[in-house]
Simulated scan of single mutants.
Amino acid sequence: MIMEAIPFILLGVIISGLIQTFLSERWIARVLPGNRYMASLLGCGVGLFFPACECGIVPITRRLLRKGVPLHAGIAFMLTGPIINPVVLFATYIAFGNDWRMVAIRGGSAIIVAYATAIVLSYLYPRLPMRLREDAAAETAAGAEFAAAAPAQASIGRRLYDVMLHAVDEFFSVGKYLVLGAFIAASMQTFIPTSSLMELGSNPVSASLVMIGLAFIMSLCSEADAFIASSFRSTFSVGALSAFLVFGPMVDIKNTLMLLGVFRGRFVLVLIGLVAVSTLGVSLIVGRLFG
């Protein structure tokens, strides 16, 4: 799991460093719509341009929030990014035997779940629910940017050096949560038999809940989970498979611990609960529509 995730963590922290160095708060404020509904919708679509998995998306989201991106737009991006990016959608297409229907179901379900979760959170949390040390770090970063306020005078070499410095800091900040999460996920996969969970999937609700639980426990990278999901086609319905394909990249053991390193614990629990309920509801609708 660690070896599978590290390349995407590296990609994520480098993008985070680029955001920190080259994007100003003023530019972000000018681009983002002021309306929470439109901003959340834009956040859902940005993931098309960021080929990051659920491990690499957390440091990118943290940096965007520090730069002034509203919580609802940041969460919408964080939840959809690991699913609707072109690499994951193409992997889904190949895994399900060149079936565009599963690609559309996965992408559409992810956008619905992320959008609903982001809108609800925008009302529940008008202020950023960052951990105390994250709040302090954001204030320090803002002060440093204000003190250095002449980006045009800095050479491109110096700015790229700053990118790498930020990337290194982010890597060691989130990397420890990745290692711990991978260890816990591997332990659960070893000691909890998959067959015992599959026996519980006797009706649409329990089947979707089982697949949500499997997605959380297995903690697969979003670039690879479609190949595992396709192996369950003879056992579970399309609705249950969509629950696995949507919930896993949004919430698993690895990124839950990474989220706990950024956000307050209560917020993370609310986030997971909203994603789980939304995923369950959407999967039942998919099951009704597509059998």
Score class of each variant (00 low, 15 high):
Val277Glu: 05
Ala148Lys: 14
Leu180Asp: 03
Ser219Gln: 03
Phe267Lys: 06
Val205Arg: 02
Leu18Phe: 10
Phe216Glu: 09
Asp252Pro: 04
Ile9Asn: 11
Glu25Tyr: 06
Ala52Ile: 10
Leu11Gly: 14
Val262Asn: 11
Ala152Gly: 04
Ile228Lys: 14
Arg30Leu: 00
Arg63Ile: 08
Ile84Arg: 04
Asn98Ala: 14
Val268Glu: 00
Ser16Tyr: 06
Asp169Glu: 13
Lys176Asp: 04
Gly34Asn: 10
Leu245Phe: 00
Ser234Asn: 09
Gly34Cys: 06
Leu245Thr: 00
Gly143His: 06
Arg158Pro: 10
Phe247Asn: 00
Cys221Asp: 01
Arg30Asn: 00
Val286Gln: 12
Asn203Ile: 08
Ile60Leu: 15
Met250Pro: 11
Ile272Asn: 02
Glu170Ser: 11
Ser219Val: 00
Arg264Trp: 04
Val163Asn: 12
Arg106Thr: 04
Lys176Gln: 10
Thr279Lys: 09
Ile94Gly: 03
Val251Pro: 05
Ala141Gly: 10
Phe96Leu: 07
Leu121Met: 15
Ile83Phe: 09
Ile15Glu: 11
Leu71Ile: 02
Phe290Glu: 03
Ile15Gly: 11
Tyr37Val: 11
Leu197His: 01
Met1Asp: 08
Gly56His: 04
Pro70Gly: 13
Asn255Trp: 02
Gly143Leu: 09
Leu245Glu: 00
Arg131Cys: 01
Ala116Asp: 03
Val163Asp: 10
Thr80Glu: 00
Leu260Asn: 08
Leu200Pro: 06
Val103Asn: 09
Leu260Cys: 05
Glu25Gln: 10
Gly45Phe: 01
Ile94Thr: 07
Gly43Gln: 03
Thr279Cys: 05
Phe77Tyr: 13
Gly213Arg: 09
Leu180Ile: 13
Asn203Met: 09
Met198Asp: 07
Thr117Asn: 07
Phe77His: 10
Met188Leu: 14
Phe146Leu: 15
Phe267Asp: 08
Arg66Glu: 15
Gly43Tyr: 00
Pro51Cys: 03
Ser109Met: 01
Ser195Ala: 07
Arg30Gln: 02
Val282Gln: 02
Thr140Leu: 15
Tyr93Pro: 04
Gly239Pro: 12
Pro249Leu: 08
Phe232Trp: 14
Ala224Arg: 14
Leu165Trp: 05
Met211Lys: 07
Ala144Asp: 10
His72Tyr: 13
Ala118Lys: 12
Leu274Ala: 04
Gly107Ile: 05
Phe244Tyr: 10
Pro193Asp: 00
Phe191Gly: 05
Gly45His: 00
Lys176Arg: 15
Val238Asn: 15
Ser237His: 01
Phe8Leu: 14
Arg158Trp: 08
Met38Gln: 14
Ile9Gln: 15
Phe216Asp: 11
Phe290Gly: 02
Ala73Phe: 03
Ser278Asp: 03
Phe267Ala: 08
Ala91Lys: 14
Leu23Glu: 03
Ala276Gln: 07
Ala224Phe: 12
Ala186Asn: 13
Ser242Phe: 02
Glu170Gln: 12
Ser206His: 09
Leu178Ala: 13
Thr92Ile: 08
Gly213Val: 04
Thr194Arg: 13
Thr117Gly: 03
Ala243His: 00
Glu54Leu: 07
Glu54Ile: 05
Val286Pro: 10
Phe96Arg: 02
